[in-house]
Design a protein around this nucleic acid. Structure first.
Lengths: 131, 131
DNA sequence: CAGCATCCTCCAGGATACTG
DNA sequence: CAGTATCCTGGAGGATGCTG
């Protein structure tokens, strides 16, 4: 028996769920940076560049909640807070980096397809934020 | 020489970019379904379930534009349109499925961390859509 | 330094109605 | 059947100002 249409619907939903979780604007960027070792709040902020303080807070809080990073407070003055990847965070980085590798190697193909499509039918290309 | 802080910033951005591209609500779901073979518009619509006709159109158009799927029109009456994964689309599925596999195997850990976090400090958990 | 609180904008995405 | 055209809402995310 060799079913052509296996309906692992749950699986698909799982992929979808994780992708939506980490597919926001900053999550993977933060996780990637933390992959190099623990970092302080503003250190992250500046190395990432372009992220608002609010979103960095939100992103880190979410990652902490999901068990991907730890938050260590030093009750000094001024305060110091270190963020670091957990084991789970490091593990997440593996498949994420694999996808990133794929992305790097295929960006050209995508861009070419995109240019071709836009050139072929400018009409239907308006899908993307109307010229 | 063993640099601890390698700044493959471009790489991170690439990961981020692809994740935002496919990290929307429906893209991977559609690609996954098409992984089983070509499908018609409404066939996809029903097998996915819950997707609005507008979003299916938008999602498919985007995937077509980026070279992940092909769109084949049969000028019959009523019209028939087949969507199918391109080679690029199939290749994308590989790392995506790997991530999906990771997701399936670690959802529990994430949920546990989440529950623990919420139980520990309900205050800070309000990050998620305020109780 | 590392946040929290507030306000505001933009757009992903749903609902509905119409068409070749 | 496979769309297109509109309208509308929620929430992601930026900007700014204040605090322990």
């Amino acid at each position: 028996m060799k079913p052509r249409h296996i309906h692992h619907t749950e699986d698909c939903r799982a992929v979808s769920a994780i992708l939506q979780r980490i597919g926001d604007k900053w999550t993977v960027l933060v996780v990637s940076k933390l992959g190099n070792g623990p970092m302080r709040f503003n250190e992250l902020r500046h190395i990432i560049g372009g992220i608002s303080q609010k979103m960095l807070t939100t992103t880190l809080r979410g990652l902490e909640r999901d068990g991907f990073v730890t938050r260590t407070m030093f009750p000094t003055i001024p305060p110091r807070v270190d963020y670091d990847l957990t084991e789970l965070g490091h593990e997440l980085l593996v498949p994420v980096n694999a996808l990133g590798e794929w992305a790097k190697q295929n960006t050209n193909r995508v861009n070419e397809a995109r240019a071709k499509f836009d050139a072929a039918c400018p009409e239907r290309a308006k899908v993307r934020k109307a010229a």
